[in-house]
Write a protein that binds this DNA or RNA. Sequence first.
RNA 1: GCCCAUAUGGCUCAGGGGUAGAGCACUUCCUUGGUAAGGAAGAGGUCGUGAGUUCAAGUCUCACUAUGGGCUCCA
Length: 612
Amino acid sequence: MHTIQRVNLSENIIGYLDEQGNIIDTQSAPEGCTATPIEYDNSEKALEIIRHSTAHLMAQAITELYPNAQFFVGPVVDEGFYYDFRVDEKIGEEDLKKIEKKMKELIKKKYKIEKYEISKDEAVEKFAHDDLKQAVLKNIPDDTVSIYKQGEFEDLCRGPHVPALRFLNNFKLTRVAGAYLGGDENAEMLTRIYGVAFADKESLKAYMTMMEEAKKRDHRKIGTEMELFMFNEASGAGLPFWMPKGAKLRYKLEQILHKAHLRRGYEPVRGPEILKADMWRTSGHYACYGENMYLTEIDGQEYGIKPMNCIGHIQIFKQTQKSYRDLPLRYYEYGVVHRHEKSGVLHGLLRVREFTQDDAHIFCEPEQIAAEVLDVVEFVDSVMKLFGFEYTMEIATKPEKAIGDDAVWEMATQGLKDALEGNNLPYTIDEGGGAFYGPKIDIKITDAIGRKWQCGTIQVDFNLPERFEVEYVAEDNTRKRPVMIHRAILGSFERFIGILTEHYAGEFPFFLAPVQVIFVPISDDHVAYAKQLKQLLLAEGIDSEIYDKNDSLNKRIRTAEKQRVPYVAIIGDEEVANKSVAIRNRRSREQYNLTQDEFMVELTKQLQEGKI
RNA sequence: GCCCAUAUGGCUCAGGGGUAGAGCACUUCCUUGGUAAGGAAGAGGUCGUGAGUUCAAGUCUCACUAUGGGCUCCA
């Protein structure tokens, strides 16, 4: 055992970057180290060191408050750090303040962080009483391990760490959570505490402010405020209700997308909500997806409520004989599906048990796959551009529970890769993340607070056509099996509208806004003209409201402005006389007058912006 | 499903073993006003549901339901 010499303690250097880009902390750096120094600031590398050490500081504080706590791992994550540990007591949000206080006390003791190395065997001996550390040690291949020490507290760790606790002043413990040991659902659940840390107070404050801003645009909060949607305890979890304003918003999105489908050669279809269980046995859903399905019995026969729409579309395809001339055949449906999601995963509109997919199935010949996949990718791109979303694509490969030959899977997966690579579209790989019947391209949107949500999906499927014996007559008059491409652009209306709401903070573009114009008549004499305008707008498919309640003019204007509508139109003597409107435009934050005709032209023009 | 927390009028929240509160919203009346809150009066809650402790429970305990933050899973 030997202690490595510390260097440069007095300076503002918390580590070094070697030629390979690895961080070497001051404890590990050799005497007279000449590698690139890492200054104490908010750079990515510096934060990595600071956050890792803050996790240790937290562990030290927890050890003092809960002496029997045992620690597992405490890594750095996107915005901060966490530490997983086992403790006899229950730890709640209230306890975080206590732990933070203890951390601050420890900083005042001015401990240095020291490092020494021991052999793995010594470490196994040293932590003999600690099964969590044994589990960590099992995953370390090296013969030598390092121990970091601050005051009485020691922890097995490969570093890197700051030289002393004085660098850890700007942190905040954000939440307490449970986490499975090793990420395994069947393993013991440990306590996890998350925290954030920065190099200065201002950055920490800026981060906390940003989180509060994100909270303000939470779709659940805005959904309640704007009366878009609701949930009802008595009716059941994960079952959304669409209130009039939410339904109007959703209807507009449906219409925009409906026209976009027709333009791209899709045909609308619709299947039943519930099908005999044997159908789901044939498809493989019963075996591979059964635990997520709602099953019931009717007249002694088992039925399953559909969790996906493919089976319906296959039956429709099979109803009449198809020729190669019919392909590619694109069926689409706003398909309502029910999935038994675990209670703990439900999350506003972003994760529900009943939702509507903008689902389509393209039946085509194998040679047509690449072109069809590309068409869909183009479709996705135009929808994402319309709303200004950033997205990434991910190819997901064969999962553990799957149907079909490996060779078929390989062919389908390669087809997806070829389509993207042939057109220089970037993607990542999600190994084992495919649907049970085929590989897929997932389209993930980044939401307002940086979380990624799977929305669109493109899946190539050779399996279901086989299982349902789907056929078409080829050019040479033989029977051939088509390939199915399952795809969704939005993914589901629920999730997509949830993300849209946060993206726009409720200020939807004109072509989507549930209420597009609010008319404020100055007095009762002006209500008739407002009603006339409302009818005119309705004929163009534009939703408006009239605020003619017995409130002061200023109050009604204020109320209207707070509704997040694109236009507030004031109607008084002047407007009635000149057939005009006085507009307050949300987008430009300006007030101006338009004639009735100009107003109509302006609105219909903005309606066109929603065309894709 | 698991860990931790939460549940008080339509909404946002205060209260904390002994007679249920506020603001906004809602209803009625006065006010008919030219660009972000005019005034007055009123109605509305057995404090999520069910048990238990207690002379007494909205308040303490337990279970359930729902919600929130995570884990695992997913459109």
